[in-house]
Simulated scan of single mutants.
Amino acid sequence: MDNENKLYETYSGLMKIKGQCGCKLIDELNMSELTLRQIEYIKRIGKYEYITISRLAEILKLSKPSITEMVKKFIKLDCVYKRQCKEDGRVQYIFLTERGKSIASFEDLKTKSLVDKMIKSLDENEINVLINILLKIKE
C-alpha cells in the first residue's frame, strides 16, 4: 500500500473515532430528540448574550408564533429558559441552559473528546511530534 492510501486509511480511521466520540456525546446529551435544524437554532441562540423571541424570529426569518412554540419545546427539553427583563417586565430574554450550551458547543466537545483519547493513547514525545506535524499542515 502506498503512502497516500496509508494516510487516507489512517485519517479515515481517525475520523471514525471522532464520529464514535460524537455518537457517545449524542447519547450523553440525549440529542436524538432534536432535529439538525433545532440544533442549529440552539447554536444561534447561544451566539447572543441577550435575545428575545421577536429578535430570534427576525434572525431566523420565522414567525413569532413558530419561535414561541420552538422555545416552549426547548424549555421542556431543558435546552433554554426565559427570564424577564428587569427594566421592562414585558420583555423576556431566552438563555441556554447548561444542556443547551453543551449542545451548542457539540463540535468542540466532539473534538475535545478525540483529543482526550489521543492524550490517553500517546506519550508526551508522540504528542509533541503530532502537534508539530499538524502545525505544518495548518500553515
Results as ranks from 00 to 15, higher is better:
R90G: 11
R90V: 14
Q92T: 14
Q92M: 15
Y93G: 04
Y93E: 05
F95I: 07
F95N: 04
L96D: 01
L96T: 02
T97R: 03
E98L: 08
R99M: 02
R99K: 03
R99N: 01
G100N: 01
K101Y: 08
K101G: 05
K101D: 07
K101Q: 10
S102K: 05
S102F: 04
A104G: 00
A104E: 00
S105L: 08
F106Y: 02
F106E: 00
E107M: 02
E107Q: 03
E107H: 04
E107T: 04
E107P: 01
D108Q: 14
D108N: 15
L109V: 06
T111C: 07
K112D: 12
S113L: 10
L114V: 01
D116C: 13
D116K: 11
K117P: 04
K117R: 12
K117T: 09
K117D: 06
M118L: 08
M118K: 01
I119W: 03
I119H: 05
K120H: 14
K120F: 15
K120R: 15
K120D: 15
S121M: 09
L122W: 03
L122F: 06
L122R: 03
L122M: 10
D123E: 13
E124T: 10
E124N: 09
E124F: 07
E126H: 14
E126C: 13
E126S: 13
I127N: 03
N128V: 11
N128A: 13
V129A: 12
L130K: 07
L130C: 09
I131S: 06
N132T: 14
N132I: 13
L134K: 06
L134H: 06
L134I: 08
L135G: 15
K136L: 12
